[in-house]
Amino acid sequence: MFDIDLAVLLFCITLAVEAVGWIGKDTLADLFYQPYSMAFGPPGSAANRALKSDILKLRAELAATSSQDEFSKWARIRRKLDKAVAELETSNASSTAAKQAFASAFKKLLWVLTTVMPFIISSWHRKAAVFYLPPGWFGPATWWMGLPSAPMGGISCGIWTMACKRTIGAVKDIVVEAVGVKEAAQPVPVGVKVPVDAPSEEKRSTEKQKDEL
């Protein structure tokens, strides 16, 4: 019968995979880096901030000291400043390296979740049908719907996933265009005319504007 649990599960997985693809792996990696670094991360950030404020203070002191009248004081401040700048650079380099290492590990994990996981789930349920088609609806295409291994007359996980993916994609496109139309329909103070004659014409002109942009 209609296995709602399986259908919903597959739909949610597909939605998640699409969402990840849509948002972008890099963006997600950046997003997740913040809490990660706070939890386990290099204890550098507080030290970094202290270092930066030190450097600013030293620079101000240096500017206030005359190199000709108080050379030894000036030279001492200069030495401290150079040392602090060098320290800041090394700590920045190490934190960038740590961030990149995290990003690459995170992206690998995402790949496993979005590719391997759905595959495993589909294979696990490969013999099950998500739901059974009313007999005779699709005629000869019924066999195709069952690929690869669902019983005859049913829809397999693979086909259901593909259908979900297509639907989600189409809905996303519609939403994006609708939001785009709304933004373009707002009065633009540059004197760009937005003809409001007929809905179809409006859509065509906004599409043209989008192309121009």
């Binding site: 190199s67 000709q68 050379f71 030279a75 200069r78 030495r79 150079d82």
Partner: peptide, 12 residues
């Protein structure tokens, strides 16, 4: 002055 400055730079 200039020689002192250069010497400091050289030593660093």
């Amino acid at each position: 002055f200039l020689s002192l400055y250069e010497t400091e730079r050289l030593i660093q």
